[in-house]
């Protein structure tokens, strides 16, 4: 297992697409977490008639005490889509390049290889989370120093809880991309379907259910994006009004956590079952 894991890490480490996706997630987090709010803070005024958000409140959102919000606030939708793409290209690439037959004719069993791939993806997702956190932390410290803001940090427990929650959200989407890639033995179709689901269909479904079919609210509350947004909401200090897209208090944090773990388990088991049973042609 260790050898397979090292091999998977080597593949991920040397694949430029993995770092491009990470870079995109990092840049989006910094733009929406710090650059745009800072521009608003620097150029805005306190007149409620112009933008409605006091400058002090904008500044508070960029200080170290809100670093977890800015690190994982975009995970349910935007970074989630990037994680789905990661899962799809890593697993789907084995089919499109035909390398699956090459690695399956080495020594390890199919389940071991897939397990090593998931473990390596989990490691890469953890690096993404830590990398984005480090960049957000640096930005928040810089802004606090420049604007004489508070440099108090969230407690270690809150920090770990937030980062772990963010990791779980990204891992769930990454496994969704992986299981779609196994199902379609492809890269493009899983990415297309997955991204359309994350960015469009879930939001549309939630909207239709809340306005036209309130009796189906249980169904909307069981969807992966809803639970990802709820988990992020529960581990950050956001108010419902200023939460980024996809982050909302649809279900409680405990339920969201269990639902996401269940999704991860279902995706992993489905991928393993299919990979073990299917012919590699």
């Amino acid at each position: 297992m260790l050898g397979s894991y090292r091999a998977e890490i080597l593949k991920l480490r040397k694949r430029s697409a993995v770092w491009v996706l990470f870079g995109a997630g990092l840049v989006l987090s910094l733009i929406f977490g710090y650059l745009l709010p800072y521009l608003g803070y620097a150029t805005g005024d306190d007149n409620p008639q112009t933008d409605g958000v006091p400058r002090a409140e904008i500044l508070r959102g960029m200080l170290p005490e809100r670093v977890v919000d800015n690190t994982i606030g975009g995970y349910p939708i935007f970074a989630g889509a990037l994680a789905l793409v990661l899962g799809a290209i890593v697993i789907g690439g084995e089919y499109t390049w035909g390398t699956l037959k090459t690695i399956l004719t080495q020594r390890p069993r199919r389940g071991t290889i897939l397990g090593a791939q998931f473990l390596a993806l989990g490691t890469m997702i953890a690096l993404w989370v830590l990398g984005i956190f480090a960049a957000c932390a640096l930005c928040s410290v810089g802004i606090a120093a420049a604007e004489n803001g508070s440099t108090s940090w969230p407690g270690v427990g809150d920090l770990l809880q937030g980062l772990a929650g963010g990791w779980l959200v990204l891992m769930m989407w990454c496994l969704a991309g992986a299981v779609l890639a196994v199902a379609f033995r492809n890269v493009a179709l899983p990415i297309g379907l997955g991204v359309v689901w994350i960015l469009g269909i879930e939001t549309l479904l939630a909207g239709v259910v809340s306005s036209l079919l309130p009796s189906l609210k249980w169904l909307a509350n069981a969807l992966p994006g809803t639970n990802a947004g709820s988990l992020v909401f529960s581990v950050t200090g956001m108010a419902a009004g200023d939460a980024p897209p996809g982050v909302r208090d649809a279900v409680g944090g405990g339920r969201a956590l269990l639902t996401l773990i269940a999704y991860c388990a279902v995706f992993a088991v489905l991928a393993a079952w299919t990979t073990r049973r299917r012919d590699v042609t």
């Binding site: 040397k14 690439g93 090459t102 020594r107």
Partner: peptide, 21 residues
Amino acid sequence: PAFYPYLSGLDNLRLLAEYAG
């Protein structure tokens, strides 16, 4: 023969060697 196009021949063999010990 199917290998990872972004890796060198050496790296392709290295990762197969990792799988196979």
